[in-house]
Computed example of a mutant assay.
Amino acid sequence: MAHLLGSQACMDSLHKDLTDLQGTIVDVFSRAGPVRFPSWKFPDRMACDLDMVALLEHYDHVPGDPEFTQLSHAVLLELVIDR
């Protein structure tokens, strides 16, 4: 499975999953209000205050930079857990 780390298809799928999760979270927040708990990934911030758009733009597939791309893949997986 290590050969999939940083693959464009996997990262595109993670981006879509995170976008879907965030949309669901926003929908629930609009009805119930934000839930104030620390982020698992960023414990110094509240989970409801994370700027997911900025995070998804920053952690993306970068052709020619496999190390950053693999790091981004791991961060996106961690963000799924965080959500």
Rank of each mutant, 00 (worst) to 15 (best):
R45V: 07
P66A: 03
A54I: 02
T69M: 08
S30I: 05
R45D: 00
C48F: 09
D27I: 10
P34N: 03
I25H: 07
R45M: 02
L50N: 05
L21H: 14
E57K: 09
V26H: 12
W40R: 02
V62P: 11
V35S: 09
D27Q: 15
C48Q: 10
R36P: 09
A54T: 08
Q70I: 02
M11Q: 08
D44M: 09
K41F: 07
K41I: 00
G6H: 11
L55V: 03
A54W: 08
H3I: 08
P34C: 01
M11L: 06
V35R: 01
H15I: 09
L50S: 01
D65F: 13
L4C: 05
L76R: 13
S39Q: 05
P38W: 02
V62A: 04
S13T: 12
A32G: 14
P43K: 03
D12G: 14
F29C: 10
G33H: 03
L5Q: 15
I81E: 08
L71H: 14
H61S: 09
V80E: 01
H73D: 11
L77N: 14
R45G: 04
P63M: 03
G23V: 06
L79H: 04
D82Y: 00
F42V: 01
G33K: 00
H61I: 05
F68G: 12
V80Y: 02
P38L: 00
R45T: 02
F37H: 14
V75G: 12
P38I: 01
M11N: 04
M52W: 04
V75E: 07
L71K: 12
G33T: 06
D82Q: 01
S13M: 09
K16E: 15
A9F: 06
H58A: 08
M52D: 05
F29A: 09
H58R: 10
V53P: 14
M11C: 11
D49V: 02
P43H: 02
L50C: 04
A9K: 12
S30A: 12
V35F: 06
L4F: 12
Q22L: 06
F37Q: 10
S39D: 00
E67R: 03
E57N: 09
E78M: 13
S72I: 08
R36H: 03
I81P: 13
P63G: 05
M1V: 13
D17A: 10
D82K: 00
W40T: 10
D20P: 12
I25G: 01
M1Y: 13
H61F: 15
L56A: 03
D51I: 00
D17F: 10
L18W: 00
V75S: 03
T69A: 06
P38E: 01
L71R: 11
P38C: 04
